[in-house]
Design a protein around this nucleic acid. Structure first.
Lengths: 335, 335
DNA sequence: TTTGGCACTCGGTAACATCGAGTGCCAACT
DNA sequence: AGTTGGCACTCGATGTTACCGAGTGCCAAA
């Protein structure tokens, strides 16, 4: 690996580049803290670091820029996640103190919180809602030939489906069908095929029931919709200088499924940070993703993350993600 | 106003500028269709159009660019909304043929449809859910001290609230409170203060009931959350050349309430198109918004729109917005 | 092994010339 | 009186050249 001095120089280069977004020359490093050698020595070391793939020169006679490998080393040697700045810590605290009500709304606000703290884009993936049992099912009549089927699951999530009936029905018939369906289906696991409902023997009830089941079957996606909350996507506009890059990254953020998969993959690989190609997406070559899973009741629930340019402030982003994920866990456990 | 020839020239300039995004010179116009005079004459007319505020020159010795007033005239004289191209018409048809299920999901997909057709950003504001009566209310127990209150309204919308109880409760108590609440509250209008629920006389029931009402009161925003569906925001990246503009516009799109207000204001002013400052937002100085309201059961429901640069293809955007709003109406009436 | 010194590289900036699309205006023409 | 060809003029865009200086690699001395 790298000896101490090389490591120190590399770290100084990355730090400087993160701050200035300009190629870093040997002079600047020689002046910097932690490095007590002349610029000539730094030059020699930087040349080595370049041949070893930690740095690159945009062109001869320019300073150096970290490569993915360079960032990776930097991140790996950050050590302790570091604490949030006082201001930001207070921001997080007051946010969670004020948080209330609906979980979706809170998660969306959380994505904005992450964005606000880090200046980049915040992403929050809610806990998956599979494997959770149906706790309640009700039919509500909206119009003579329309009912709404409301399914409430154990994790507090809700599905609703509008059902067009073949014929007009009465309140009583809907109530009967509702009770029948509830009796048969409560307890079944979300996503399991719900077709095995015995008939009740009552014709109108069964007519409604079968319409409902048909709709449920039709819209029963293999996986739940898994929506993602993306906050502060507009900040990506200042992350890259090429407009096409901005557009490409925004496009990625618009695809919910892609984002969910991305976060999960990164977490599954045990990473806290995915830099450039480590994300597995060409589009994110110059970007980096800082993630943290959060658990509820000991189980891996969802994950949160911050997406920014590769030259983002990893220390801050990691601290923010850790703090928020932490508070989110306790918040969700309390309910 | 403008005589025929001036109008024709203005229209040709706008058309050309929309296509090329380059200042348009007199030569190009003289060659163009509908104008059978020499470039010298066109020059004279263009000079007049400039003094009258329809065109500007970015600098002497350059072609002309439409002003807001120029675009406005262009839009006002477009005449018939025009039909969608065959391809796009087919796209719309097949979209609505395949549309099914949840209204929210459909509206979100609609915003993407608009974006796909016009190449800009699609916006869909759902029908407001005020004034609609509560059709059903149920409490569902999720944990010993947690219940979920599910309110279903006449328009098919649902509110849910997690309630933390003071003490553990049994299924029967929840059921009793649920029935009591439902009996008292069904029929009340969304947003009206729900406090006037008489006690039932049964202590545990009343304990649950009051907790629920407290939560409902606390989270009862004056207006419903009114979320907006924005599709294809990434396309704004190619709409402007200044990154800051892109960022500013994206920022606007992130603020749901602002977008809702924006659309409503434009529609209320009876406009189909708001260009630059007509939007009322400084940020959108170089942008334009094409909107259409849609009605359900004869009542103004929500609105849809396309946001793009001022030099967008108005004909196409207006056709798209009209067609989609149209299909959306019939789709929503059918249920 | 470190470091001061030095020749060298090359992107960035400025100064300057050139080109040409486009203009305004005017005199000639319908 | 309106239209048009002609023409001098403007000025952004493009290209050329020169120069500066931050930064490099390398070498010889410490």
């Amino acid at each position: 690996m790298l000896d101490d001095r090389k490591a120190a120089i590399l770290r100084a280069v990355v730090q400087e580049y993160i701050e200035t977004a300009q190629p870093v020359g040997s002079g600047r490093i020689a002046d910097a803290d932690g490095v007590d050698v002349s610029s000539a020595t730094v030059r020699n070391e930087m040349a080595t670091l370049e041949t070893e793939g930690y740095l690159v020169q945009p062109h001869t006679s320019a300073g150096r820029i970290p490569t993915e490998k360079g960032y990776r080393h930097f991140v790996d040697t950050i050590g302790a996640p570091g604490a949030l700045s006082g201001d930001h810590a207070r921001q997080v605290s007051s946010f969670f103190r004020a948080a209330h009500g609906e979980i979706e709304g809170m998660l969306e606000a959380t994505s904005r919180l992450l964005s606000g703290i880090t200046d980049w884009t915040g992403v929050v993936v809610p806990p998956p809602s599979t494997e959770t049992p149906l706790r309640s099912m009700h039919l509500v009549q909206l119009a003579p030939q329309h009912v709404l089927a409301v399914s409430v699951y154990g994790d507090g999530s809700i599905d609703k489906h509008t059902i067009d009936l073949e014929a007009e029905v009465t309140d009583e018939q809907v109530a009967a069908a509702s009770a029948h369906l509830a009796a048969q289906m409560v307890g079944s696991i979300r996503g399991s095929e719900p077709s095995a409902v015995p008939t009740s023997g009552d014709a109108p009830t069964d007519a409604i029931t079968s319409s409902v089941l048909a709709t449920l079957d039709a819209t029963n996606e293999p996986a739940a919709p898994t929506d993602v909350f993306v906050g502060g996507a507009s900040r990506m506009a200042s992350a890259f200088d090429a407009v096409e890059t901005v557009q490409a990254v925004l496009h990625v953020l618009e695809q919910q499924l892609v984002v969910v998969t991305l976060l999960r993959d990164v977490v599954d690989r045990g990473l806290q940070v995915a830099i450039g190609s480590e994300t597995g997406m060409d589009t994110l070559a110059n970007a980096a993703l800082v993630v943290a899973p959060y658990t509820v009741d000991g189980e891996r629930a969802g994950s949160i993350g911050v997406l920014g340019p590769a030259r983002m402030d990893y220390r801050e982003a990691m601290a923010a993600v850790a703090a928020v994920s932490n508070r989110l866990e306790t918040r969700l456990i309390e309910g």
